[in-house]
């Protein structure tokens, strides 16, 4: 096979990874604080839409990205307040928010742009691509790092920052403690409710970022439901990476690759089949992984098992 072709697949994998990585990090911060957030999908989709909308109005990719992050954060705040403050059931809140955002963006698409299905316009300003100083001169490496936006690079920095935050700072320790045992945190005057809501809002911002990376990354357009389950794949990647931001990078790359694989084989293999590759990969990865973990869990479960049947 042509090496340049392989490298271009890797390149497209890197670009597909970004939204998944952000969703996975969002999932991690929620899980670590003890919240099960199923609304990642909706938090992303709002980012994708708002990004494009603001881009179209202001012609500024920077403002578009910031607006997407704020929009994601707002949806996150809604989820956090409902789930944490009012103890609403996580699955119900998550599913409703996902459906709500799906419908809302479809309506706004029609109201604002007067189109159905998708919106693409030459007036939309794409994100600048990063031109690495030396690497772009080297033949193979230049293919590998071709066409990556600042958002792609920044996502890895975010993962590392999150790692430092969680495991090296006092605030991060408090967040972890809330996830481990909320009574213990409260006995020290650390508010579990505030910490958790903050975590969910942060997850919203991360998802908004992930969403705009999707609508303004490889392409610059918005399509209805364009996140297509990436929020859930992010949850899988988070699970696979055991809620550890560094491990999550690798788990997300795995899903990014299956995404890229699906995209590049579309023409040779029936596309219905290839497009299901990322989802099949998700299921397989979860099965393999949970079997490994099950052995470890048996012990804890046994000790927690109720004495009564």
């Amino acid at each position: 096979m042509d090496i340049n072709y392989v490298l271009s697949v890797v390149n497209s994998a890197l670009r597909s990874t970004t939204p998944i990585l952000l969703a996975a990090l969002a999932s991690a911060i929620c899980t670590r604080s003890g919240v099960f957030n199923v609304a990642l999908e909706g938090q992303m989709l709002i980012g994708s839409f708002v990004g494009i909308a603001v881009n179209w109005v202001t012609h500024s990719p920077t403002l578009a990205v910031l607006a997407a992050i704020v929009a994601g954060g707002l949806v996150g705040a809604l989820v956090g307040i409902l789930q944490v403050r009012y103890n609403a059931a996580d699955m119900v809140v998550g599913t409703s928010v996902n459906l709500l955002v799906g419908a809302l963006t479809a309506i706004l698409l029609f109201v604002v742009f007067g189109v159905k299905g998708g919106f693409k316009d030459p007036a939309l300003v794409p994100l600048p691509k990063v031109k690495l100083p030396v690497i772009s001169e080297i033949p193979y490496l230049s293919t590998l790092f071709n066409n990556l936006s600042p958002l792609d690079y920044l996502s890895y920095v975010i993962a590392i920052v999150m790692y430092i935050y969680l495991f090296k700072t006092v605030k991060g320790y408090h967040l972890l403690s809330v996830g481990v045992k909320r009574e213990a945190a409260e006995s020290m005057g650390i508010s579990a409710v505030k910490t958790r809501i903050a975590a969910v809002i942060a997850s919203g911002c991360l998802c908004g970022y992930g969403g705009v990376a999707l609508s303004m990354g490889q392409v610059t357009l918005f399509a209805e439901n364009m996140t297509a389950g990436r929020g859930f794949i992010g949850m899988a990647a988070c699970n696979l990476g055991k809620n550890n931001p560094i491990a999550i990078i690798f788990a997300s790359l795995f899903f990014g690759f299956s995404d890229a694989f699906a995209a590049t084989t579309q023409n040779t293999i029936p596309s219905q089949l290839t497009q299901s590759v990322p989802y099949i990969a998700t299921i397989l990865a979860l099965i393999v992984f949970s079997r490994k973990r099950k052995k470890k869990a048996t012990k804890t479960e046994e000790s927690k098992a109720e004495a009564v049947s």
């Binding site: 481990v180 213990a184 020290m188 650390i190």
Partner: peptide, 20 residues
């Protein structure tokens, strides 16, 4: 007890008043 099981003894003891 109000301890955090996955953390070390030292981490638990300073919990809430951590040295920085």
């Amino acid at each position: 007890f109000m301890l955090l099981p996955p953390f070390t003894v030292a981490e638990n003891i300073v919990y809430g008043n951590e040295p920085r």
